[in-house]
Design a protein around this nucleic acid. Structure first.
Lengths: 204, 204
DNA sequence: AATGTACATGTACATAAGTACAGAAACGGA
DNA sequence: TCCGTTTCTGTACTTATGTACATGTACATT
């Protein structure tokens, strides 16, 4: 996240717009959606107050645009599940690693929580908030059926909340037990036996 | 929930304080924590602006007090699980009914979501938000072991989110599948073909 | 009934936040 | 270099919100 200080006065609309968006997303994630103000964003982005109003007609528009950015970030996390799904039933360790990766990514977790909770009172955000859950269900359905896919997705939502509130409560054992139970996978060995490769994630 | 209009000018500190608290809780639940202002509360409660500042030294204090009320409401829902837990393994229908009851209670669900998400950025609320999850884990642990209890509680967190976003997605079948899978209950009606482990014992 | 006290009300003021906008600054092309 | 255009900045205005407080009102006590 190189938020380049963005030379003041310099003309670079694209970069400026992006800097503002990033700053808004950052504030939502770290201080909550209630802390999102023009001035806070301007300060965080290192731009003048006027710039925030120039690029986004209203604070609501800015907020929604920031949520789109966050949704895309979460989507990106989701994409890393995909390669492991085909072999999931035979070897769940891969998906579980990815799920843990996601749950340990404090930023993604906070982004997801902000999105989900804001959508509760703002219907405009509903589709955005549900997008990744629905994609996950779609992806899983092909392998474990729709019902179990839904159960797994719901569990991961819950795990996201827990990860946001007390990260230390998220353990490989816990996630393994839950996912294998819900997906209908029955391991012959104990869940804790996987000490495989910690998957490298190419930065998106 | 009869929010008696509360005759204006009438002296009744207890009722007044309660009306303010109820109103604040209502606003948090229906419009989100961001919509909580003294004026909104006063209007909702049908009292004068001054009353809200008289009974609560600051808006933060009022907000926190409202969250306590909400946490107690959620706690009350939780209590209805208890009678069904001893027979849960033999007859899961009872608990599942209660879980569905809770998930269909839009108010309790919204309250829980507001609590959980606010706690993400406000440490003061953490204990409050985690209380019911922890109680549930405690209650369940005696019957299905700590690990599975944690998994069930996490799933219910996720189901709460889903219930808040799209209530229609919460079905008896879905909840039944998830809870029986996670709790290690094997019903005759679901040919999920598991090896018949008994529930694992509590953790180390 | 008179009166003192605790409660209730509405106004008023300070601060914060959203938004508009006039002017400055940078860039591109004569 | 000079000029026009686009972008950037800071200020100013309006509204919303938190909070204080002076005044009004109901009730208990006498």
């Amino acid at each position: 996240m190189t938020t380049e200080p963005l030379a003041p006065g310099k003309r670079d609309p694209e970069a400026r717009r992006l800097a503002i968006l990033r700053a808004a997303a950052e504030i939502i994630v770290t201080r909550g959606p209630g802390a999102l103000t023009h001035r806070a964003v301007a300060s965080q982005a290192g731009v003048a107050l006027g710039s925030t109003t120039q690029y986004f007609a209203s604070i609501d528009e800015l907020r929604e645009a920031a949520f789109v950015v966050l949704a895309e970030e979460v989507d990106a996390s989701l994409a890393s599940f995909a390669p492991h799904l085909p072999t999931m039933l035979a070897d769940p360790a891969g998906v579980i690693d990815e799920v843990l990766n996601y749950l340990n990514d404090a930023r993604a977790v906070s982004a997801d929580i902000a999105l989900l909770s804001s959508a509760t009172t703002e219907p405009r955000l509903l589709e955005l908030a549900l997008r990744w859950t629905d994609k996950l269900i779609d992806m899983l359905s092909a392998h474990i059926g729709h019902d179990r896919a839904e159960a797994v997705a719901t569990y991961i939502d819950g795990a996201t909340i827990q990860a946001g509130l007390r990260p230390e409560s998220v353990t490989r054992e816990g996630v393994t037990l839950a996912l294998t139970s819900l997906a209908g996978i029955h391991t012959s060995s104990h869940p804790t036996s996987t000490t495989g490769h910690p998957p490298e994630k190419s930065d998106a």
